[in-house]
Design a protein around this nucleic acid. Structure first.
Lengths: 216, 216
DNA sequence: ACAACTAAAACGAACGATCCTTCTTTTTGA
DNA sequence: TCAAAAAGAAGGATCGTTCGTTTTAGTTGT
């Protein structure tokens, strides 16, 4: 194939990215060899090295893509106006994130959550990728903090807790549930939504007596 | 040193485990070479291979230890009777987990959260370690589910949500916050506690009007 | 008390395997 | 027919591990 159309070049690049992502989701970035990737994408070394200068660049491309997809999932769902209550918001964000790359599977289970955890570990040893992660995380946290402020301004949530702490907590719930999917297999985002809804019904210590009175 | 005391043997083994854990927290299991470990613990290859049959066994030993420490942190804190409300419980569990191996640091920051995330990725490619993880997680979830049932039976929490979903959600919050510590640096467990307390004050959609009336 | 002895602990050079990458050659599509 | 794309053998580096040697702590004999 000489002088190939741009669509073909793009398709090849995507083919490489998808195959490599599958390998990396299976075994992690550094336990998968280039030959593993070459076998998965069914191409020669010369072909792959025409699209990526090396393994490091391939990893960086996949990390950047995954971070972008997670970022989009978190941000887009938060643009809804007015913002839904936290349980609905977190569950729908998680559902959207889990919907990305659903076709990519590792022995029948979605590979994306696994890939996200692998990306986390890679940002721990690559400062450039760590910068990307912080950038995206900061933007999302800013968005969510504004939503929490709206909760508090409308009297929906107690106003005596710093909004960014609440935002961090909601993101932690989503991140932790994502990790659970990677480690223990798929589960509906509804599980997390139900759990948060139940937590929202708990009164803190100073109000417990009041609630107990009502429920009797 | 021939015929060395058992304490010396144990100390050597621990020295190797600690040095290796530091390396693995820095760079992950498969991006750190044995020579990196040898340099860190300041021993020769022959010495290390006297205590561990190979890299794999060294990794397995560290993974098992980390999983055990996390497990203990989750379980011991939950034995308190009566169980504190969710925000207090989750925060104190996280505080306890973060207190493990506090002396082990990567450029001044605690290495343990990083190590936990690395352990997660290793369980994705080692079925034996995955079994260990599932075992520990299952036990913790059972304990927490019982606590949630207590919440519901005392009228502290709405009873129409499956208790194990709530348990999963609380554990997700803790896991996600742990991941945040690995990725973005240390933070007090109080942050998560405050966030959960704020979430606990949110009324769901059908009750919003009621709360707004009260707050005016 | 001290020197010789011994078995274990530690050393570290070196081996084979595997890794990532390069480069020449072959194939292919325009 | 030609330039681009893909192939795949091979190079150089690094990996995990082994194994013959050296060092050392504890024991024995006098």
């Amino acid at each position: 194939m000489a002088r190939v159309s741009q669509e073909h070049l793009d398709a090849r690049r995507r083919q490489i990215l998808d195959g490599a992502a599958l390998c990396f989701a299976r075994n992690g970035f550094h336990a998968t060899s280039m030959q593993d990737v070459l076998k998965e994408v069914d191409l020669s070394a010369g072909a792959v090295y025409r699209y990526f200068s090396g393994k490091e660049e391939l990893i960086a491309a996949i990390v950047a893509e995954v971070l972008g997809q997670v970022h989009d999932g978190f941000e887009e769902e938060a643009r809804n106006s007015p913002p839904p209550p936290p349980d609905i918001l977190v569950a729908s964000v998680l559902g959207r994130v889990l919907a990305t790359k659903e076709s990519l599977t590792v022995d029948g289970r979605p590979a994306f959550p696994r890939l996200v955890v692998q990306v986390w570990t890679e940002t721990l040893r690559n400062d450039e990728l760590a910068g990307l992660l912080r950038e995206g995380y900061g933007a999302v946290q800013a968005t969510w903090t504004r939503i929490v402020e709206a909760y508090q301004e409308t009297g929906m949530m107690r106003p005596d807790v710093s909004p960014d702490r609440v935002a961090r907590t909601m993101m932690a719930a989503a991140m932790g549930f994502l990790a659970q999917q990677a480690l223990f297999g798929p589960a509906s985002a509804e599980v997390l939504g139900d759990g948060l809804r139940a937590l929202m019904s708990v009164q803190d210590h100073s109000s417990v007596n009041l609630l107990e009175t009502r429920s009797n």
